[in-house]
Nucleic acid binder design. Structure first.
Lengths: 312, 312
DNA sequence: ACTGGAGTGGCAAACGTTTTCAAGGGCAGG
DNA sequence: CCTGCCCTTGAAAACGTTTGCCACTCCAGT
């Protein structure tokens, strides 16, 4: 078209404060340029980082992001999936581990199949029952690596503070612990394991129980928040960290560095998970069949783990 | 209608896996049941909490939430406003302080006016140039109250670590500091003030400069992250907290309790801000003209502030 | 048996786009 | 000067709902 016509139209559009209606466009193109993401708790920086990575990757491609914070409630999570479908999002990304509730699992499968049948894309960034393009962080291996690190420091009796059983990821991380324990021939038994919520208080309570039940030189927590709770519990019980007890975490959230004792932990690359998730999503939407991306952790050594002198 | 017809329809809907298209509905009703929120950084728990509060309040009313993380970039923020408008959100909530860039301000006013002209609702949860139903947290008063608290502990020479000047809220908090200093007749002068980014490193650097320039017994930081940075800088410089220097923060983020020294700070009720924002938004959408809601802070005394013996 | 009213069912218009199609106009080549 | 082609322009259909309207049925009251 001619430049002057173009100019004329643009100025008129501006004068009338015209803004194209993407809903109408979406209706005819069957592409809404929106994506929905489901997390457990948006105020948790773990998920905040993932969402930020996603958002950064999506924004430049003109996609908008719906955020749903399910509070780990199966009903609420399923509600969100339905709502996202109804709002015709182009993709749903599951940033949070799925739950282990069987009826939830079944319904989720059904809803997911429907959504896909309509052309929707499902992307998974966590340990999840659903299939789809996926960013993998090997939680099992991560925990096993932490145990290996502890073994390298001379520990032979190590305890485990695990997450809530209703989360799939809790089982995966626990499996990493038990396989490593078996592999290295460490002291074993149910008394070496205590579970709790993924929170400071959950970690503290679990640590208290562990202290009663087992005699260990180190403990690995399934999350940094729990590790911090464990350290507080230890300090309150008069046992020094790391001299009386070593503590290792998993996540490397910002608090980890500033806690009561700077925490030795394994970094989970949350922002990168989100960022790669966006890429995967975009490629799939473009019709490609991208390979899963695999991200790995890295042990951040700080001050909460001590060496143990091996006798002899 | 008859129960059997109802049953028939419902089962057919299920069999065909029917899910109503809200886009089509939105097109005719001019109500999309969506809300957009703009924050500076979704990985910052400060904003995460606000978003969570919003989301909790909106979810039950069947509204979905778009989240935009602007990274404090004026261009990106304006982009989001336009995009939200184009996606026909029923409301935009500004959870983050507006920026001080003049051309940004002008454009934002224009876009906001357009959005409102189309029937959109604007809700403000921060110090912001835009008008609208608002959840007020008096940042000016909060900082003044912290200074008053320090004065009550005997401090007469107190420094201030402020936020970046390009944020409106930085100016508001600084004003709270300077008025309190004047009111109590404290030592004053530009050497008592140092600014930095709202981060740990920003706070540390500012603390370093303050240490060079002024001789103070206490310092108030414009955010907890900065306060933690300041404490680390102090500790690294060999000055004890609180015995060598008192430090007070503002926010009460989770880290505050677990930092190098448990931080005395003022709690900002972020979750409640979000929650009330949702209520305000819903009422406005329903055609009401609700009053602004005013939330206030509360000083959380921990261990980073000491008393100063007044001579004589 | 006739009328009136309430409730039901179906039809058509509208929301603001994109997309397809046809018709129209201008220009180059023969 | 005519034919053919390409580009522009305009009109119309479609997306999946809601809503208003009209005709219809059914029942009660007279």
């Amino acid at each position: 078209m001619s430049p002057k016509t173009r100019e004329l139209v643009l100025s008129a559009a501006d004068r009338l404060s015209f803004e194209p209606n993407r809903l109408a466009r979406a209706l005819v193109t069957a592409k809404s340029q929106t994506v929905g993401v489901i997390v457990h708790d948006i105020s948790d920086p773990y998920f905040g980082e993932i969402v930020k990575g996603l958002e950064d990757g999506l924004h430049s491609e003109d996609y908008r992001l719906f955020v749903a914070s399910s509070d780990r409630d199966p009903v609420r999570e399923l509600d969100y999936v339905r709502a996202f479908h109804a709002h015709q999002v182009d993709a749903i990304v599951f940033a949070a581990s799925s739950l282990t509730d069987p009826s939830y699992a079944e319904t989720l499968e059904t809803l997911s199949a429907r959504f896909r049948a309509r052309g929707g894309v499902v992307v998974v960034l966590s340990d999840h029952l659903l299939e789809g393009p996926r960013v993998r962080f090997d939680n099992r291996r991560a925990v096993a690596d932490i145990v290996a690190y502890l073994v390298g420091r001379g520990h032979r009796r190590v305890g485990y503070i695990g997450g809530p059983p209703e989360l799939l990821v809790s089982g995966v991380r626990l499996a990493g612990f038990t396989t490593a324990v078996a592999e290295f021939g460490l002291a074993t038994g149910p008394e070496y394991i205590a579970n709790g919520g993924f929170t400071v208080t959950g970690g503290g309570a679990a640590m208290g129980r562990l202290l009663e039940a087992a005699d260990v030189t180190a403990v690995v927590a399934a999350s940094d928040l729990m590790a911090i709770g464990a350290m507080r519990q230890l300090l309150a019980s008069g046992v020094a960290v790391p001299d009386g007890m070593s503590v290792a975490g998993l996540d490397d959230i910002p608090i980890a560095e500033y806690g009561p004792v700077p925490l030795t932990t394994m970094r989970i690359p949350t922002y990168e998970i989100g960022r790669h998730g966006a890429l995967l999503l975009l490629e799939t939407l473009a019709g490609d069949k991208p390979d899963d991306v695999v991200l790995s952790g890295e042990i951040i050594e700080r001050e909460s783990v001590a060496n143990v002198e091996t006798p002899g």
